[in-house]
């Protein structure tokens, strides 16, 4: 029996910025992006559900930090196979950078107390930093396996996993408890289960604020964040002078002729 915690984040969907999210000035209006379950956190959830299947009686607890609306990812997790969820929400937690976020999550995990494995996505698509997993591990004094593609074996004592490394893959063995971050190339998460939807539609989640997790006020939110944003500049997508061609032989041959004659290719 394993006690599994899955960290999940609700993020603006930055993958497909459509015209509806663009302002007339050619910049992205972030508020217009839909809020989604961070994709790699779903890969992490799938690994958790597989572990639960291999170890009957295991429990999966989802943990998220965000606005009250972030409870949507907890519910989605329950629909797919998690057992319960904890929402960390408090004004005092706002403006947190990755370090303050990790401290807060680690405090909540300490309050949960009993855990064998903490799973999360490698990174979130709104920041792409990949920092929170390793920082949570450091705060809890645990080792980690990042960029995990598949958990090959897991007992109460040790885990064996295959992970992506630059230019290849490696298989590592590590003792539990541990933090495991899961890559987008890992197995996709199974879809919702109808029975689970019916059973969990109205479930209320445990909600904790800063005081509930015994957080040091100097380490949370804006105050606990070493990084400051000095300036933010929106990218303007300006049109160049573009020649539009058809796929006719003439158009294509003229283009290739131009490129070859100018020694651009060839």
């Amino acid at each position: 029996m394993l006690k599994i915690i899955v960290l999940a984040k609700q993020v603006p969907d930055t993958r497909n910025v459509g015209p509806e999210a663009m302002t007339p000035e050619g910049t992205v209006n972030r508020a217009a992006l839909p809020a989604v379950f961070n994709p790699e956190d779903l890969n992490a959830l799938e690994q958790a559900i597989r572990l639960k299947e291999q170890h009957p009686g295991s429990t999966i607890t989802m943990l998220t930090m965000g606005l009250p609306k972030a409870a949507e990812v907890l519910r989605e997790g329950l629909y797919r196979g998690a057992d319960n969820g904890i929402l960390l929400t408090d004004r005092a937690l706002g403006g947190a950078d990755t370090l303050a976020t990790s401290y807060t999550l680690a405090q909540a995990i300490k309050k949960v107390g009993d855990y064998d494995i903490i799973l999360c996505g490698r990174q979130a698509i709104d920041g792409d930093t990949a920092q929170v997993g390793p920082q949570v591990a450091e705060k809890l004094g645990l080792t980690q396996i990042t960029y995990t593609e598949e958990i090959l074996e897991c007992t109460k004592e040790k885990i064996v996993a295959r992970r992506h490394i630059d230019g290849g893959v490696e298989t590592v063995e590590a003792p539990l408890p541990i933090v495991v971050t899961v890559n987008g190339s890992a197995a996709p998460c199974r879809s919702r289960n109808v029975k689970r939807i019916m059973a969990n539609k109205k479930v209320e989640f445990t909600t904790w604020g800063a005081a509930d997790i015994d957080a040091d006020p100097t380490q949370i939110g804006k105050a606990g964040s070493p990084t400051n944003v000095k300036a933010v500049k929106s990218i303007v997508f300006k049109a160049k002078e573009t020649k539009t061609l058809t796929s006719s032989d003439e158009d294509i041959n003229n283009l290739m002729k131009e490129l070859i004659e100018s020694n651009t290719i060839g």
Partner: peptide
């Protein structure tokens, strides 16, 4: 910002309580 740098950097920044900016 390699697999190693992104595995190590966050842990170092957490242990020293310093800011880390990715990529």
């Amino acid at each position: 910002a390699t697999v190693i740098g992104r595995d190590l950097g966050p842990r170092v920044s957490s242990a020293l309580h310093s800011g880390l900016t990715a990529d």
